[in-house]
Design a protein around this nucleic acid. Sequence first.
DNA 1: CTGTTAGCGCGTTCAC
DNA 2: GTGAACGCGCTAACAG
Lengths: 357, 357
Amino acid sequence: MITRKATLRDVSLLAGVSRMTVARVLNRSDLVRPATRARVEQAVSALGYVPDRAAGSLSTRRSGFVGLVLPTLNNGNFASLAEGLTEALRPAGYEVLIGYTTYSVAEEERQIRTMLARRPEALVLAATNHSPATRRLLDHQRLPVIEIAELPSRPLAHAIGISNEAVGRAAAGYLLGLGHRRLGAIGPGRAGDRIDTRGEARLRGFVAAVREAEMPTAVALAEGGLPNSYSQGASAMAALLLQAPEVEAVFAISDLSAVGALMECQRRGIAVPDRISLLGFGDFEVGQQLVPPLSTIATDFPGMGHSAGRMIIDLLAAAAAVPALDQRLDIGFNLLARGTTRTTAATSHEHRGVLHA
Amino acid sequence: MITRKATLRDVSLLAGVSRMTVARVLNRSDLVRPATRARVEQAVSALGYVPDRAAGSLSTRRSGFVGLVLPTLNNGNFASLAEGLTEALRPAGYEVLIGYTTYSVAEEERQIRTMLARRPEALVLAATNHSPATRRLLDHQRLPVIEIAELPSRPLAHAIGISNEAVGRAAAGYLLGLGHRRLGAIGPGRAGDRIDTRGEARLRGFVAAVREAEMPTAVALAEGGLPNSYSQGASAMAALLLQAPEVEAVFAISDLSAVGALMECQRRGIAVPDRISLLGFGDFEVGQQLVPPLSTIATDFPGMGHSAGRMIIDLLAAAAAVPALDQRLDIGFNLLARGTTRTTAATSHEHRGVLHA
DNA sequence: CTGTTAGCGCGTTCAC
DNA sequence: GTGAACGCGCTAACAG
């Protein structure tokens, strides 16, 4: 048994053919005689040979990688997005290289730089505020970049997602429509350069819409920095109740915090939705099971990942042709009125988000 | 502006030096005159040059990758494990390449083969039942393999984790110690070749211990296949109540199913823990916030990932020296008696898992 | 159908 | 301090 990893040459020697023939067998070219092919395949399995893609990539100039940069792995929505992207890309032979930034802009820059060294064929970014250096870096590479889960005002190139500000506005509109007059929100915390820009956009939209309706609004931010979590939702709810004891309806930037807030209400004997209506975002699975089930705003995270994958496949196939125009795909959102928001005859239970195709 | 991606040569041409000098600057060698270095650095940033690691790896024969194969991304415990591993490895310059198998043995084989083509320097596997082909494949590669989150009876090499069977036994022992006599369990479903072997090991341990105590036990498996989820826990609980209406204490294979089960009880007006004690596994964050807070068995997933990272760094550093013996690290577990299990004077609230060092 | 030649972008000698 | 030559393992292009 040889002591280093088997190479194409080892296989070719064992099979008594040239390296090129082995390569043909491996790449399913049908210009190889069955008998030769069999000898090669036997040698491959005898040696436990696995082709070295790094070497192959160097030659073909195609890495087979698509990079995905997420704020965190520990969030079901992003995990679903990653799975959707992976599944769309797998049939086309691409692998997804996942990095996470803990919501830090500086860390995003580091991650992207590290990924670029692996020569990804496309990049999917779930953050939308990038450092100037990141923007410059990306400008120099000729590779498709898709921003996802938001529709940035200053996009790098393509974007697939929703307007998080519109989500916040929809939340406000819905709660006001229910007849609530004293609104509140639970927003994401910050820590250093770690910022949940999408969450803040939802919060911004919410506050703006409430102000425009000339209603009072109170906001409590989760302490202890990101990522959003159940316990932060609970303590933010406690803070909100201190600040605005008469609050009637609360929009939580994430289901994670909404669940924590709901539990805090239960511990305090505050009836939901009778005394306080509660609305989340993200449609996390746990929300459906809670008693009462959580009202939330849903958007299709696996679908976003999948769309990004399809877009990448198209973009890469058409790369030789006309350079594509930057695309912008709004996948919309649904407000799911379940058990934590007061019901009135006046409100429908399905509120389609706007779709700018 | 050049039209292809910048290379070392492009930088060297622009800076008016040789490629070697650029390489020296990039690799922080101090044998370069400051003035030369400055010129090079300027050229690098002007071109937005990022070194090609695939080419570098080919030359150094070090990919800088560590592969991590998970059952699913959509599980907080595995996400934490991945983050722990990534953080331990980052300072040493390794990147983590994550793949997931949806609990399928065949898919694991495919994933591992794909990863091996990227020449990882080590592999961390969160599954413990591998196909014969996978075992053969791994035998041919000379690379450290760590199985994680379980201590397999037939390990490939190194292992870091817990005995999931011991977890099940501890669950049974604890519930029996509380005075419960009619026990039940909610276990993982199956679908085709998708199997949650760790979950099944916990279930096996639980059932064995109950039988040894000569008590009756009922088991309901979640329908609809993997992964485990909140809704499956709810429906499994419903099935269990049908099958064994008088059940007094239930062990759920995962907090995910435990939460679903708890909610199902709330919907049916079944008092927890007064009528039924409920115990989960995994210490998911949501459990702490629930009312009542979920009793569970906790183990340190980020810590496991971190330990694996440290082990890999050590193994790789010592690679030249003596081939290391296979290591086996039991990180133990804690039973956290919170609000969903009946309290008796006889039980302590901390039950340390056995530690076989 | 099969083999030969050249080169992908970088690191590692060794000279200068 | 700096540079030239060779090779990592593979594939593209052409020859036979």
